[in-house]
Computed example of a mutant assay.
Amino acid sequence: MKPEDLGYNESLEKYRVEHNLGGFEAGRVVAAHKERYIVRTAEGEFEAEITGHLRFTAKTREDFPAVGDWVAVSPFDSGLAIIHAILPRSSVLKRQAVGSSAEVQVIAANIDYAFLVQAVDRDFNVNRLERYLTICHASNVQPIIVLTKTDLIDRTRLEGIIQSIKARIKDVPVIAISNETRSGFKELQAFIRKGKTYCLLGSSGVGKSSLLNNLSGRGIMRTDAISRSTSKGRHVTTHREVVLLESGGILIDNPGMREVGIADSSGGLETTFESIAQLAQKCKFKDCTHTAEAGCAVLAAVEAGEIDRASYENYMKMAREKSHFEATVAERRKKDKAFGKMIRNIKKDIRKREE
């Protein structure tokens, strides 16, 4: 297998050479388990760890390798390898880390397209789709909406679901499939191109693992039935993994995400809710909160039925999450800066005493 088969390109090779990493091999992280990684190179797969220097200089979770990353590694005959550096990322899918108000979790790196997977029989929720769209737009990843389990509902209901999506979400492909009958797979496979990287985003039990198995033509990921007692999907995938498809596409499966916290600093929210963002420019006050102000163009459009009220409410909820996250990060950085200053002063005092 050549590195190019996994998405390696001239830009990455140029960086590797220019930054004196030519003595290491280029490999792609295809699976991650805490701080141990599986890296695939032209020579095969290796179980890898990062260097102490890389661990010491990491300031946040984003500085650690993630599935999809290209890394400079030194492999050994034992099947082990050491990761010395992470090569530049073309995109980074991320969300607020679960259980942390000021940390970011990297979902996957170097993604070109994201399949946003929802099951039409129970999981369908446009608000959640808008959340996935926001993290995609913030990461410069092209989204494709995939509706699964279409064999479980009638055609009329399916068409109604598709129309409800298109009423709120513009210019994003919507593909309806069945993992049982393979309906819609030809349309889906038309989006898969050689050398491009795709990932699956969705809740547990929506059919992501079955979709991966069908696209790969192999029974790679184990699948479980829906729990009869809760009507919820059983959580099967517990880590991220890269699969090379026969078509030449590269597919990353992700664990089901119960929470999709917004950590948007790149305009993803504005892109997802483009019509609201454009109307906000017409508000009477520049600092309009779009809640109760006179002359608010957004509220006027909602009252006139020009903006879907549910979409507006979802936008406002995510905007509050974004503001809270950014404020929390800013406060943490302020505290870290003060702590660093205190440590420097202590060291300075110790040096003076020693002199």
Rank of each mutant, 00 (worst) to 15 (best):
G99R: 14
L269F: 09
G23M: 10
Y37M: 11
T60G: 00
E331C: 02
S164L: 09
M342K: 10
D308E: 09
D171E: 13
R95W: 09
D123W: 01
I250T: 02
V302N: 04
L133A: 06
E47M: 10
E246L: 03
R344M: 07
Q118N: 07
A108M: 00
Y198M: 14
R344Q: 14
T57P: 00
F124S: 01
V120P: 04
E62S: 13
R128H: 12
E321T: 00
G22W: 03
G52M: 06
V146M: 04
A32T: 12
R16D: 11
F339Q: 10
E303W: 00
S323L: 05
G219K: 13
V302C: 03
C296P: 03
S139N: 05
L299H: 07
V117E: 01
G217W: 11
Q281R: 13
H33M: 05
L12P: 03
R218E: 05
E10D: 15
A330H: 14
V29M: 07
A225V: 12
E306S: 09
T60I: 02
E47V: 13
P173R: 12
M318H: 08
Q163L: 14
A31R: 07
G219W: 08
L152P: 05
A72I: 11
L6Q: 10
S247D: 01
E13Q: 13
R40M: 05
V98Q: 01
T223G: 02
E18A: 15
G249M: 08
G340N: 15
T134M: 04
A292V: 08
D5E: 15
A81E: 02
V236S: 15
A42I: 10
P65Q: 06
A167H: 13
I145G: 04
T237K: 04
P75G: 08
G267T: 10
I145A: 04
M221C: 07
I111A: 00
M1K: 15
N125Q: 10
G305T: 07
D287C: 03
E355H: 15
K34G: 03
V126E: 06
E241I: 08
K59L: 12
S216T: 14
G233H: 01
Q281C: 03
H235Q: 12
P173N: 09
D224E: 14
A301S: 06
Y15D: 13
R89T: 07
